[in-house]
């Protein structure tokens, strides 16, 4: 390729006139062809003033929160590859696979569950009877924040707050669950701080021992994805009660 051809190829890449396959080719070549890469960078600099020709357009208010949410999910996913001790909170993606978290909770969370079982039963309008109970605790300090109770074959569960949580005005709490063999968590809807909620379970497989439940902090009106994107505030596993 002569010098003119190189500069025309780089120039057409920057202009955008190359078809998709040729674009991909240039991008692949740039990583090990310093001359082509330099030529592309020169065109980018030379033609940059043309970006002033387009009139500025105000983005919608939702765009930044979308970007922010995606970046938070990316950061959480990247942190998921580091040791748990280095994390400020449990990574939102992959928490359901976090052995370490569950070992920690097995030691303290279940003890809390047993303890809370005694305390909470007194507060409930009806004794829970046979079925399941989950105590949702903070992943860091293991302090209990919510209780979930459901009958053995119940079509719904009840989520009961044990205290008030401060939620920023632009955020929402979202409730999730995941059975042992499920591919990922399923949303059980939004939750208001300090308010009980009846959660229908009729669309889900029957409750099972050790099923996971958690509440995450999500953008206002909930996660834009089919999985949590924000930090976990409370988490727990279902235990069978007699």
């Amino acid at each position: 390729m002569n010098a003119d051809d190189l500069h025309v190829l780089a120039g057409e890449y920057v202009l955008g006139t190359l078809p998709a396959a040729r674009r991909a080719e240039v991008e692949a070549r740039m990583s090990n062809d310093a001359a082509l890469r330099t030529a592309v960078e020169q065109w980018q600099q030379k033609l940059l003033p043309l970006n002033e020709v387009a009139a500025p357009v105000e983005p919608s208010a939702a765009l930044w929160s979308r970007i922010e949410t995606s970046v938070a999910a990316k950061v959480a996913a990247d942190r998921g590859t580091r040791p748990a001790a280095a994390r400020p909170a449990v990574a939102a993606s992959g928490w359901w696979n976090s052995l370490r978290l569950w070992r920690g909770l097995a030691a303290t969370g279940f003890a809390a569950a047993a303890f809370m079982g005694i305390v909470v039963v007194g507060k409930l309008a009806q004794p829970p009877g046979p079925g399941y109970m989950v105590v949702l605790v903070g992943p860091q300090d293991k302090s209990p924040g919510w209780v979930v109770q459901a009958g053995t074959n119940s079509q719904q569960a009840r989520l009961i707050p044990l205290g008030k949580v401060d939620v920023p005005a632009d955020k929402s709490l979202q409730f999730w669950t995941k059975g042992n063999d499920w591919k990922g968590p399923v949303s059980l809807g939004l939750v208001r701080p300090g308010e009980s909620k009846e959660v229908p379970l009729d669309k889900l497989p029957p409750l099972e021992p050790n099923q996971l439940f958690e509440i995450t902090l999500e953008p206002y009106n909930g996660s834009p994805l089919d999985r949590p994107t924000g930090p976990i505030l409370f988490i727990g596993r279902a235990v069978k009660i007699i």
Partner: peptide, 28 residues
């Protein structure tokens, strides 16, 4: 820079929603 960047993207993709998608992916 988002106002200018959205202007640039919109001229190229010619659709407001797609331009915002482009900006989202670009910021990622």
């Amino acid at each position: 820079e988002s106002r200018r960047l959205l202007g640039v993207a919109l001229r190229i993709v010619r659709d407001r929603a797609r331009a915002e998608d482009v900006l989202h992916d670009a910021f990622m």
